[in-house]
Write a protein that binds this DNA or RNA. Structure first.
Lengths: 345, 345
DNA sequence: CTGTTAGCGCGTTCAA
DNA sequence: TTGAACGCGCTAACAG
């Protein structure tokens, strides 16, 4: 009905000074039990809640962190955000969210703006590293930053990623074991860390088997994948298997192959990096490299809050780099014939 | 490196009062062009950025809104969040996010806590209406609230939903036109507005065709759907078609039917409410009632910002209720035999 | 057109 | 153990 009660009103009602109220709220040390209970009663009666804004202005603690992802509409990032948020809330922190839409300028603008909002720390999945990141700017030196999914080569930024190289290598090796000699790699953005690293893992696997690796093909849409496959499958040395660089590409590939009326894995085999919902229900079920999506967000948040606990002087010279394990989930699109999914470390 | 510059420093450097700096930053009216440019230069040189916290403490404008969803991990809500965030950013607002995990207590706690953070407005997808919502509490009277996906029967809350009744009715009618006489309805939470309304639409369609509608079955997991279908399909009057109350149930149903080695739509037909990624790539492609997910978030945000523009005195007596159109997307699981999807208004 | 004064609500001195 | 006064950075009133 009326405006919210302030600390002064509580103090008056309890016949104490505002300082006492403040103490009861925070330390609760050096306050006699009976005074404290009087204060509590007053708080109750007035429905008083501390004004977080005023708190933040006074001290340096805004009790909020910022999260910037390329796009929340992407289920992968949505799950990351979900887990980060869970950790944040458990620590009493608010999470402010923003999308960079894969634009370095937007990313920088959002990050800078979050600093104005006095977030205590920043969690970022950085945009493609085509341009040097401006997240190393001096204004960010006093704010802990953790990057995830894609690392940031900056001294002040910790990072959490998965074993992209090893995972892609293992997946490709599996394809080779199925007898494939011509395997193509499809990505969306060749400058993207994840895609680049996965392509490198793929390359190593082929080289080790004395086979010729292909380029990292850039296919940004279902149409692009369709056109590419249609063209290349008509050529000599047509691929007999596809390695899809991420789950979006996997889905595009599946759609394109369907339109081309090709049978998986008989006409062409497929393995994709990153599992997705219903991948096991496709016809055929898709073999994938599974990344620990839940763990990724949680770990990144944990790393950030760990840094938040440390005073700035104690920040490590070199920030931590965490790498999460991935698994090869064998289903049928690779050529295996399992009833259910099988997991290989 | 050093602490951020404050307004006073800018003022000193530009040889003006802080008020002038403030004016340049906001109105920029009643300031001589040359003074303004001196101020701008000083701002530039110091890399000054206004402290949003102080601004928020001073005025009532925190330039932030709160969003509470049952779970960000759900793609449906992730997309809503994405669109809401886009609108918010375009208005210069930050979005604070929280999940209620379908708990009324958590929902209330998060909402209350957001008020402490002085959000200017709240967007909420309310938890199941099993318990009367506490969002009508007096403390929320001064804060505009918009609920989406599920309405809230409170005078101070506007809402944006889709045509659940009409959509479910149309889908069920379609099943009836295919000759089905025994159609079962599967939901997850019978008290949920969306599920309840869709079940009602389903019931009306059957009644209108002089058929007997079934209960709203509660199936909270793939296991539950599996057990239910296994049992009921062995009984007399076994269903020849299933109406799935939302996309999660659709996926469960698809999985369960697969495990039961039943053919869709020959052994049993399926229609689901709410489309999802790859639904058109399943075997067979799933016929669904498609809701305008993108529009939902955007509309809800628009409604909120409209309210934010109005002074409290001008708030309408009765809050707005928006209902978004849905479409029947015909694929193959209903019994139709299309090459591609067909859309019916 | 511009500067001065006075808080916003809290927590941190320092004195009682 | 407690309270008074000051100031965080900014802007709404009022002068000038």
């Amino acid at each position: 009905m009326t405006k919210r009660a302030t600390m002064i009103e509580v103090a008056r009602l309890a016949n104490v000074g505002t300082m006492t109220v403040s103490r009861v709220l925070n330390n609760s040390t050096h306050v006699s039990p009976e005074t404290a209970s009087r204060v509590h009663a007053a708080i109750e009666r007035l429905g008083y809640r501390p004004n977080e804004i005023a708190r933040a202005l006074r001290g340096a603690k805004s009790k909020s962190i910022g999260l910037i992802v390329p796009s929340l509409a992407d289920p992968f990032f949505a799950i990351c955000a979900h887990n980060i948020n869970t950790v944040a809330r458990s620590q009493g922190y608010a999470m402010i969210l923003a999308s960079s839409n894969d634009s370095p300028d937007t990313e920088f603008a959002q990050a800078e703006w979050m600093l104005q909002k006095h977030v205590e720390g920043l969690l970022i999945c950085p945009v493609s590293a085509a341009h040097p990141s401006r997240l190393g700017d001096p204004i960010f030196q006093r704010t802990p930053i953790v990057s995830f999914d894609r690392p940031l080569a900056l001294p002040n930024v910790a990072s959490v990623v998965v074993e992209n190289h090893a995972g892609a290598k293992k997946g490709t090796q599996h394809l080779i074991e199925h007898g494939h000699k011509h395997i193509h790699f499809l990505g969306d953005a060749p400058d993207l860390f994840t895609i680049k690293t996965r392509h490198e893992g793929y390359r190593r696997a082929l080289l080790a088997a004395k086979l010729t690796p292909g380029e990292c093909m850039t296919c940004n849409s279902e149409e692009a994948v369709f056109d590419y496959l249609k063209r290349v499958l008509a050529e000599p040395h047509a691929p007999s298997a596809i390695f899809a660089g991420n789950n979006r590409i996997s889905r595009y590939t599946f759609r394109a192959l369907n339109r081309l009326e090709l049978r998986i894995p008989d006409d062409i085999a497929v393995i994709g990096f990153d599992d997705f919902d219903m991948a096991d229900m496709m016809q055929p079920p898709l073999t994938v490299i599974n990344q620990p999506v839940d763990l990724m967000g949680r770990t990144a948040a944990d790393v950030l809050f760990e840094k938040l606990r440390l005073p700035m002087e104690e920040w490590p010279e070199q920030e931590s780099r965490t790498s999460l394990k991935v698994q090869l989930v064998l289903r049928a699109s690779c050529g295996c014939a399992f009833g259910a999914s099988t997991v290989e470390e």
